[in-house]
Design a protein around this nucleic acid. Structure first.
Length: 695
RNA sequence: GCCCACGUAGCUCAGGUGGUAGAGCGAUGCCUUGGUAAGGCAUAGGUCACCGGUUCAACCCCGGUCGUGGGCUCCA
C-alpha cells in the first residue's frame, strides 16, 4: 500500500480513548486506511491524515541536504541505500520529550475547561470523554441541539474567561460507589457508564475513582492536570464533528469539539501556519488548478479520471517502474479485471473480503463473476500455468493491476481513498531457503523508491502474528524470523509491532516523511502462508519432489492513485523534471522568432521532452504568466539576440534566470537532470519546527 | 453507513425576511507586436445538484436522492 499516513496506526488505542487528532479547521482529512495490508492487495489507499502535524524531531530536519536526494545514478548499488536505513532515527514515540510531558496535561486541562464552558452554556449537556490527543484535545457531548460555529466562538470566549480566573485544578478521590452516586445525581450517564466499566481492582488506590475540579466544574478523571487554568495560554477551538460513544457505531452519536493547545502563542501560530501549508498543498485543490485529475459525479464517486497532465506523470512512473522491475528480474504480466466466482471462493475472498467486492455479475447462465479486488489469485494462476521447477525460482511476477473495492462513501477522499485503483503489485514465488534474500531485495528496492521521490526518515516496522490468524505456530515462526533476519542482517533498526500482522502473514511496513514532515505509510512486504496453501502452489525440487512455494506479496507505490495524490502534496505541485507534464515552454518574444522557437521545440521534442512552443500572438508577459501557473519546469525565452546567437534565455520555474545559454548546453543539462531524476530546485524539506513539539 | 455542514456560470464566490440571478478570473472576438507573472474593448455562458411537496409565486421553506467537506465507524 501505498503511502498512508500513519498517525492513525500509531495510535492504536482502545476504543473510547482518544483517537486521532483534532481536526483543525482548515483542512482536516480523514485518516486513512489503507488498505494496506491486504496485501495482496494492498494497497490501498488511504488517506493521510493531514491534520496532524508530524511529529518530529530535530533529527528530521537534520538530514544533510544532499543526502536524501534521489539517486543520482540510476541502478545504483543497493548497499548504498542501506546506509540511509542505518542512520534511521528511532521512532517518534520513543522520543517523547519533555514537551510532551507538558503538553498532555495542558491539553487535557484545556479539554476540561472546554467541557466546563459547554456546561455553562448548555446545562443539560451530557459529558462523554475528553482526552488530550496529538496536536490538541477534544471532548464529546450529548446536547439537545446541534452545535454551530457560532457556538464554538461562544464556548471559546467562555473558556478564556475561565482561563482568566486562573482557577486551580484540584484532585479528589472517592469510592467507586460514591463516584457512581455523584455522577448519577448530576445526570451524567456516560460518566456512570465509565465508572461501571472500571476494573474494581485497578487503580493506584484500589477501587477508588478520582475527580478533578476547577472553578465549579468537576469531572471524572485520572489526571494529571496543570496547577491552574491560567497556564492554558495558547489554544483555539477548531471544529465540530460527530463521534460515536466509545467509537461504537451502535452506540449514540455524540458531538465532538476539537481544539488545539500549545505551550506558547508562537507554537500555536506555527501550528496554524502548518495547517495553512497543508491546505495549500491539498491535492484536490492542486488537482483542479493544474488540471491533474477529476472525479465526475456521473461516472461515480471514488473513480478517478486521470487528466492529460497527471497521465504524463503516471506514464513516467510506470515506465520507470517497468524498467526497474525488468532490471531486477521480475516478469511482468497482465491478468483479467473480472473472474469467476470459483476462484474467489477458493482464495477466500468471497468469504473474507466479499463485502468489499463488486459483484456478482451474471455473465452467463450459472456463471457468476466478480470484479477483481486483488491481483494475487491471478498471479498464482500465472505461476501455475505449468509445472514449475526449483530452477525457475524465485519467480517474481509483477503487474500494474487495476482493482476495484467498495469503500463506504464517508471514507472516500480525492485520490487518496478511492474505489478503483492500480497497484504496482508483485508476488514472488520462491523456496523458504530463498525467502529471506528475496525480502532483502524487495526492501532495498523500496528504500530506493522512497529516496528517488525525496521522502525521508524511513521508519521500519516488523508486524508479527495477530491473535486471529491462520496456520501453525511453526509457520509463523519461520515467516517472522525470515523477515527479522532480512532486517537484522542489514543492520536495519526497526520497531516491533506485536500482533500487527495480517491474519495470514507477518509484514514489514516502511513509513516515511514527506516534505512538510507528515508521515505516510510506504511500501509493505508480507510473507503469505495462506494462499499458497489454499491453491496448493508447489514447485518441483532438486530431488523431484513437490514442495510448497513461499509467496511474498509486496507493493512499492501501493496504488498509483494514492501514491500520486501524495506526490502532488509532497511536491506542492512542483514536480521534478522527469515527471513534469510540461517540461519546457519555448516563448518567442516576437513573431520573428517563431520559427527559431519551433526549431528549439523540435530539438527538445526529438529528445523526448514534453515541450510546447507558445507562438500565439500574446504579450510575452502573458505567456510567462500562463506557463508559470501551469508549473512548466523551464521557460525558454527566444528574442532577437538569442535567435541570432543560437542561444536561449532560461527562465526556470523557480530560481535565477540564465541568459545566453547555448542550445546544445541546454539540451545536455536537461537530459542530465531528467536522467538523474533530480528533485526540483523548488523542492525543500521543511524543517519540522512545530512538529518538534508535537510528537 | 452514521453525525454536522455544504452543493449558484469552466474556476473562486456574492445573492437581509420567497417575486426565476451577479462579480472576478477563465473562454470567445477585435484592438494591442510585446524583453521576463495579469494591456484595452466587447460578447457568450446558469433547469441556482437532482426529484417531489408547500405557495399565486421557490435559488431561497419542507422531504427525499446524489455528490462534496470535516469527523466517527470501517479499513490495519
Amino acid at each position: 500500500m501505498a503511502l498512508r499516513r500513519l498517525d492513525r496506526d500509531l495510535d492504536r488505542r482502545p476504543p473510547g480513548e482518544p483517537g486521532p487528532g483534532p481536526a483543525p479547521a482548515p483542512s482536516p482529512r480523514p485518516a486513512g486506511p489503507a488498505g494496506g495490508a491486504d496485501s495482496q492487495g494492498g494497497a490501498g489507499q488511504a488517506a493521510p491524515d493531514r491534520r496532524r502535524l508530524p511529529p518530529s524531531t530535530p533529527a528530521a530536519g537534520a538530514e544533510p541536504g544532499g543526502a536524501d536526494r534521489p539517486a543520482r545514478r540510476r541502478g545504483q548499488a543497493p548497499p548504498r541505500e542501506l546506509k540511509v536505513v542505518a542512520k534511521m532515527r528511532p521512532m517518534p514515540k520513543v522520543e517523547r520529550g519533555k514537551s510532551d510531558e507538558e503538553l498532555i496535561p495542558l491539553r487535557h486541562s484545556a479539554a476540561h475547561v472546554m467541557a466546563g464552558a459547554v456546561l455553562d452554556l448548555f446545562p443539560e449537556a451530557k459529558l462523554g470523554i475528553g482526552p488530550a490527543i496529538k496536536d490538541g484535545f477534544y471532548y464529546d457531548f450529548e446536547l439537545s441541539r446541534a452545535l454551530t460555529p457560532e457556538d464554538l466562538a461562544q464556548i471559546e470566549a467562555r473558556m478564556r474567561e475561565v482561563v482568566g480566573l486562573n482557577a486551580s485544578f484540584q484532585r479528589e478521590t472517592m469510592s467507586r460507589e460514591e463516584g457512581l452516586r455523584y455522577f448519577r445525581e448530576r445526570r451524567q450517564p456516560y460518566k456512570v457508564e465509565l465508572i461501571e466499566g472500571f476494573d474494581p481492582e485497578e487503580g493506584a488506590e484500589g477501587g477508588q475513582v478520582s475527580t478533578y475540579q476547577h472553578a465549579d466544574f468537576v469531572d471524572l478523571c485520572k489526571g494529571p492536570h496543570l496547577g491552574r487554568t491560567g497556564e492554558i495560554r495558547a489554544f483555539k477551538l477548531m471544529s465540530i464533528a460527530g463521534a460515536y460513544w466509545r467509537g461504537d457505531e451502535k452506540k449514540p452519536m455524540l458531538q465532538r469539539i476539537y481544539g488545539t493547545a500549545w505551550l506558547s502563542q508562537a507554537d500555536l501560530d506555527l501550528y496554524l501556519a502548518h495547517l495553512a501549508e497543508v491546505e495549500r498543498r491539498d491535492h484536490r485543490k492542486l488537482g483542479k488548478e493544474l488540471e491533474l485529475f477529476d472525479i465526475d459525479e456521473e461516472i461515480g464517486s471514488g473513480l478517478v479520471l486521470w487528466l492529460p497532465n497527471l497521465s504524463a506523470v503516471r506514464e513516467e512512473l510506470e515506465a520507470w517502474w517497468r524498467r526497474v522491475h525488468h532490471d531486477r528480474g521480475y516478469t511482468l504480466v497482465y491478468t483479467p479485471h473480472i473472474a469467476s466466482e470459483r476462484i474467489y471462493q477458493r482464495s477466500g475472498h468471497i468469504e473474507k473480503y466479499g463485502e468489499n467486492m463488486y459483484g456478482p455479475l451474471e455473465l452467463e447462465e450459472h456463471q457468476r463473476f466478480w470484479i477483481k479486488p486483488m491481483n494475487c489469485p491471478g498471479h498464482i494462476k500465472v505461476f501455475q500455468s505449468r509445472l514449475r521447477s526449483y530452477r525457475e525460482l524465485p519467480l517474481r511476477i509483477g503487474e500494474l493491476g487495476t482493482v476495484y473495492r467498495y469503500e463506504r462513501s464517508g471514507t472516500l477522499h480525492g485520490m487518496l481513498r478511492v474505489r478503483g485503483f492500480t497497484q504496482d503489485d508483485s508476488h514472488i514465488f520462491c523456496s523458504w531457503a530463498d525467502a529471506q534474500a528475496e525480502i532483502g531485495k524487495v526492501f532495498e528496492l523500496a528504500m530506493e523508491f522512497m529516496r528517488v521521490f525525496g521522502y525521508t526518515d524511513p521508519v521500519i516496522y516488523l508486524s508479527t502474528r495477530p491473535a486471529k490468524r491462520l496456520g501453525t505456530d511453526e509457520m509463523w515462526d519461520r515467516a517472522e524470523s525470515a523477515l527479522r533476519e532480512a532486517l537484522e542482517r542489514r543492520g536495519v533498526q526497526y520497531r516491533l509491532d506485536q500482533g500487527g500482522g495480517v491474519f495470514y502473514a507477518p509484514k514489514i511496513d516502511i513509513k516515511m516523511r514527506d516534505a512538510i514532515g507528515r508521515e505516510w505509510q510506504g511500501p509493505t512486504i508480507q510473507i503469505d502462508l495462506n494462499l499458497p496453501d489454499r491453491f496448493d502452489v508447489t514447485y518441483v525440487t532438486e530431488k523431484g519432489e513437490r514442495e510448497r512455494a513461499v509467496m511474498i506479496h509486496r507493493v512499492l507505490y501501493g496504488s498509483l492513485e494514492r501514491f500520486v495524490g501524495g506526490l502532488i502534496e509532497h511536491y506542492a505541485g512542483n514536480f521534478p523534471l522527469w515527471l513534469s507534464w510540461l517540461q519546457v515552454v519555448v516563448i518567442p518574444i516576437k513573431p520573428e522568432q517563431n520559427e527559431r522557437s519551433r526549431e528549439i521545440g523540435a530539438a527538445l521534442s526529438e529528445r523526448g521532452f514534453r515541450v510546447e512552443v507558445d507562438d500565439r500572438g500574446l504579450d510575452m508577459r502573458e505567456k510567462i504568466k500562463q506557463a508559470q501557473s501551469r508549473k512548466a519546469s523551464y521557460m525558454l525565452i527566444v528574442g532577437a539576440r538569442e535567435a541570432a546567437a543560437g542561444t536561449v534565455s532560461i527562465r526556470p520555474r523557480h530560481g535565477p534566470q540564465e541568459q545566453n545559454v547555448r542550445l546544445e548546453d541546454l539540451l545536455s543539462r536537461l537530459e542530465e537532470e531528467r536522467a538523474t531524476k533530480a528533485l526540483p530546485s523548488d523542492f525543500r524539506v521543511e524543517a519540522p519546527s512545530v512538529a518538534a513539539a508535537v510528537t
